[in-house]
Amino acid sequence: MSKGNNKSVMKIENLQAKIGDKQILKGLNLELEAGKVHAIMGPNGAGKSTLSKAIVGHYDIEILGGDITYKDKSILEMEAEERALEGIFLSFQHPVEIPGVNNAYFLRTALNAKLKHQGKDELNAAEFLRLMKGHLEMLGMKSDMISRSLNEGFSGGEKKRNEILQMLTLEPEVIILDEIDSGLDIDALRAVSEGINKMKDGKRTFLVITHYSRILDYIEPDYIHVLKDGKVIKTAGPELVPYLEEHGYDGIEED
């Protein structure tokens, strides 16, 4: 439920979803305006991560009702890889480690899958490495990071930088950042934010899921959505952030 009359890129209507036996999303409505930064804030257990998982088609989630449309098409029947190829990207809160899978090989496979989907020529190894060089420098990542196994033995900060590296490489259109600031020191937070801000071109849409307002000092939001008990209870501009800092979520009145 964004403000203004600009075109929405994603619309979530009356979404109900459960994980296991527990219903988490209870009729959630949200509209993402193209090219804007939407922040989702809310207390623990409100359903923030469940929402991100529902958007990308995570196997944990069972949809009970409602719909998610992306570019005016329902995506609920689409596999996770189809959603990704169409331009939806989730930066995971806890990226998994995959020993034995080379980071560069993984990323090139993903990029070439996307290029193929778009009917473009795939990148050879040399072209890919040239592309990586610039991204790695910008994120302050050592060049050996892409020759290591995917996320294996990476620190918390390195994992988050690696998520942003994937985002820069795959150039998605809707970017969901799930607790991107958790576990980051100030330098890592700056580097990660710089990577995200580089992608802010007025066309890409961001959904920033966070507990704390710290990340919003670096990535300026256009809209704040407060999520509580499986529903968006309030949508406002960035001026809501200091109010939440001061009063918490309990004092928020439903729109």
């Binding site: 998994v96 995959i98 993903a110």
Partner: peptide
């Protein structure tokens, strides 16, 4: 691990292959 690879646009079969080879 399978889901992570798929969430980056890699097909289910390719994701399985990558993990099996790993």
């Amino acid at each position: 691990q399978l889901f992570y690879l798929q969430s980056r646009g890699i097909s289910y079969i390719e994701a399985r292959k990558i993990l099996v080879i790993a």
